[in-house]
Design a protein around this nucleic acid. Sequence first.
RNA 1: GCGGGUGUGGCGGAAUUGGUAGACGCGCCAGACUCAAAAUCUGGUUUCCGCAAGGAAGUGGGAGUUCGAGUCUCCCCACCCGCACCA
Length: 852
Amino acid sequence: MARYNFRESERRWQRAWDERQVFAAADASDRQKYYVLEMFPYPSGRIHMGHLRNYTMGDVIARYKRAQGFNVLHPMGWDAFGLPAENAAMEKGVHPAEWTRANIDTMRGQLKLMGLSLDWSRELATCDPDYYGQQQKIFLAALKSKLAYRQESWVNWDPVDHTVLANEQVIEGKGWRSGAPVERRKLFQWFFRITAFRDELLAALQRLPRWPNKVRVMQERWIGRSEGAFVDFPITGRSEPLRVFTTRPDTLFGASFCAIAADHPLAEELAKNSAGLGDFIAECRQLGTSEEVIEQAEKRGYDTGLRAKHPFSSGQDLPVYVANFVLMGYGTGAIFGCPAHDQRDLDFANKYQLPVKPVVIPATADPESYRVTDEAYLGEGRLANSGFLDGLDVDAAKRAAIAKLEDSSQGEGTITYRLRDWGVSRQRYWGCPIPVIHCDHCGIVPVPDEDLPVKLPDDVDITEPGNALDRHPTWKHVACPICGRAALRDTDTLDTFVDSSWYFARFCAPEAPEPVDRQAADYWLPVDQYIGGVEHAILHLLYARFFMRAMRQAGYLKVDEPFDGLFTQGMVNHSTYQTADGVWVQPSEVVRNEDGSYALAENAAPVTVGRVEKMSKSKKNVVDPSDVIDAFGADTARWFILSDSPPDRDMEWTDAGVQGAFRFVNRVSRLVEQTLPKLPACGTPLADDLSDSAVTMLRTIHQTIANVTADVESFHFNRAVARLYELTNLLAKADDSIHPTVLRKAIESLVLLISPMMPHLAEEVWEQLGHKTWVIDTPWPKADPAFLVNETVTIAVQVNGKLRGKIDIARDSEEDDVREAARTVENVATAIAGRPLRRAIVVPNRLVNFVV
RNA sequence: GCGGGUGUGGCGGAAUUGGUAGACGCGCCAGACUCAAAAUCUGGUUUCCGCAAGGAAGUGGGAGUUCGAGUCUCCCCACCCGCACCA
């Protein structure tokens, strides 16, 4: 029998969909809209398995929603700016634009072979002047509303690559690419005032129930709101008090020292006259990340000799230390130490023999004898040894302490955040130029609207590190738009996270003359389902949330949350292989011996199987999706990547699993082919005189429809796959007692249910079944509630909670009947014989438990 | 350290509100077809005892609640991810 020709079929249907433009989304429709989006790829060269998994899942949702009658938008684009293009330029001498365009072409071709239901008419790349020009408008709007600003700030400077590095790109104090020790430099940088929305960004997380809890928690911690107070400690012999931040103003009476960061201005000032302090500060800075790990919790300090006056307890002076555990970047860079109720402070106090005075007494402790020695007490309790706070609980004491601080002008209640403004300047060529001009006379001048977009010059020299834009002989020299005198363009480009912060809004109307078309955006946004890797949990997703608010403020659109539903998929892993001398080898080079061991295909040298790990080039455990699609077809690849593993968990790619999926593709095709001669014509209604087995089949069909629908709806694709295997298994066993009309119903249901996952196969067999219309235009099957319950149920019979037998009985039978039927089961009868029956528990339609 | 998560056969994983543990797939075993192989089909496959019927144990470990616990409570262990001296 001829095997299903996936090559021909997939090519044919991809062409057919394309010719009819079935996936082009209509902006106006009376159907409800549904916007499905997967995180757009960086055009690195080729599609990888992560893409295959991501886009397959998105495609299942898109096709399913379409079949449910939604007006679906499912677009695709390219996150096309970024450093790898410049690296390629340096290494291979190819222009970044050319390299990027070639990669896009390759990857578009690969995506098309997957058979995705994408609206390619909306394709965009962030490196298109059309796109980044619109982005420049958004930047200028932000500049106007002061959401973008320029400020001198400390940056990580890579002296070899001549560029600023993000904190994430500094690994153990060295540049991630160059390996050179990073320098701290002060540069003028552009910032987005993300902190303007910090409370809103935090509070709105509560209104995103369709986001993974994990991501919400991560963002919450990233924003890092904490309530507390500023306290001003007067310093003897100085006019300026020392301002500290605390979340525990209630424990002020337990203070036994103050400490400031090594970078604190006061520390730097004192160091001028104290070589010892200067050395200590230098040591703190040098310490860096690596040694810190070694020294772990070692708290160290240097007594400055200054004394701080306690704000509430006159006559009590506290020593002021410079301490290595105080960070300049949080709060005020200064703290007061209350050892009894903070573990770090306690460690520090124990090291330097400072007093430890408990001021919060646990309810269970005796106030007279309560002591804190090695473990700080962080819990609830009543205040003691605390003057006017005595007897209050922690919350009341916080309020009372803040009130007193404010009354006596010694401090105030406040809220601090971890979130900092977003630095977006990058000293790179391959990015969106920042559309401002620096004029000696007029200052910072926005590029006039009619001069946008500020395009990147093509003729650049990217043979050495650094900013090719800045090196360009003419590009930056322009006349000031205001005074006409010689001026300079800003030669920095925007962080590529800016590009990905609003692309989903652009998809609503990619040709619009403004960044977004208000009407289209109001219709399509927010994205109903966004799908991507969890690695973007903070930066990309937070920036996008900020951007929607910034764009709303500028009047571009009305939403503030870009993604109503978010799904984060797991990684694709593969086992690793190593030769005896430790060289990693590709899976394709390895064969399995008969005894289960592995060897090199080439020369039979033994190979050891290592851990199952994320696919990576260094471990060589990479499988190219295109190879799989080429050998087995897109439907096989899609089906396998949806099988077995829950979508949010990591999965293992295995050849055997692919084979299994391939078998199933062919099995479905064969099943249709073999059953076809028995089937009535397309559209024949169900017969009414059905055999019992035919009714059973109908039940299974409708239960499968209901289950698969629920599974797809809730992203349980692996469960949906299992249900479809079950239906197929049952169908394969169908004999002549099943009425042909039921058989047709079963097969057609199967085909429609697999269609979001294996769209080509579904179209192909749908046509074989005699349909003139396409699956893509066929509504999702509906489960008939009448068939969702069985007439008979199997009831478990337990004795003392142990399974002793089963009975089949009519659904909703009387309790007494069920009990009596259960009692007569042979095993049960012997088990309860001669013992007094203490109880009989009957769970309707489920179970009987005899307690003896 | 803090936060989030995971732990079930040889493997990936299923199991409404607590109610028949191991669906489905992979692998493996046996059989059919075949000169043979591949492909396909049929049956079996948690472990232990037993020829069998059947019995016992069993969801990382230990307690507990319950007629009944993979599921609920408490304590511990391991692994993964994120943030890491956040005052």
